[in-house]
Design a protein around this nucleic acid. Structure first.
Lengths: 133, 133
DNA sequence: TGCGAAAAAGTACATTTGTGCTTATTCTGT
DNA sequence: ACAGAATAAGCACAAATGTACTTTTTCGCA
């Protein structure tokens, strides 16, 4: 059995995210990327990447004297799981409830609303039987 | 300074959620509510509620021999923060990106889509300059 | 051809979290 | 008034997490 990959902690998540952005990177590059947004020691990034490797989220390949890391798991998967959990916890698992919260509770600008409408229209188009155009 | 309330761990979150649902409850009632969805010992619920109290999320009042607990922080606040963090981490803080993900990556049924459209229409109506009817 | 810099590997350690057992306290009914 | 049943309070403890320091290995170059 593939042993369901253990969930990522917050710190692991920021390192994983950085790696997703870079696709592939040495520890130095990764550290640079991470510190764009978060303050974190080189060695700390290193610890996280090791844990990510242990958890099966990342693989390393030796290139010269560097390890070059790359993701083994796509972000969509992790994002999806995180979202699932969050929706279950707060919105009874219902996507529309989340939508409602995002729109009413959080407030959304006119342009965002317009954008959203386009997204909806498009989704409607390609997944169902559209009647009118 | 009010000292920003420490974030809730996952276990604390399920207990807090139960309490939000009940508005106010003794430990026994709370345990009953929690175990609707999660398997958790009475004493464990108790530990969590104590931590929640320590963190300032919950207050207790003695009623007879019971402690009656109630939330000190509204769910919207916690949900909002959780969402913020999540959106920052995964969607560059952009609500529309989250929408897009929810719709395309996750798939949404026709009825949900219709519902969503109504929500959008309504939001459009009461926040902007409505044209029709 | 060996030294220094860079990187990797190993180790550390306090705090938080998950999870619950144990002990003390307090009503309630007889 | 007291025994038993609820309930609260205290304590415990392994695992995970945040955070990094230290030691070892390994190229590139002087």
């Amino acid at each position: 059995m593939p042993r369901k990959p253990a969930a990522l902690s917050k710190g692991e998540m920021v390192v994983a995210s950085a790696l997703w952005r870079l696709k592939s990177a040495s520890l130095g590059e990764l550290h640079a990327e991470v510190t764009q947004t978060d303050s974190m020691e080189y060695a700390t990034v290193q610890s996280y990447i090791r844990r990510l490797e242990a958890k099966g989220y990342v693989k390393a390949k030796r290139v010269g004297r560097n390890n070059v890391y790359s993701p083994k798991i796509r972000p969509e998967k992790v994002i999806g799981q995180t979202l699932d959990e969050m929706m279950k916890q707060f919105f009874d698992g219902k996507t529309v409830s989340l939508f409602r919260h995002l729109i009413s509770e959080r407030g959304i600008s006119d342009s965002e609303l317009a954008e959203l409408r386009r997204i909806v229209d498009q989704a409607d188009g390609n997944s169902g039987d559209a009647e009118d155009e």
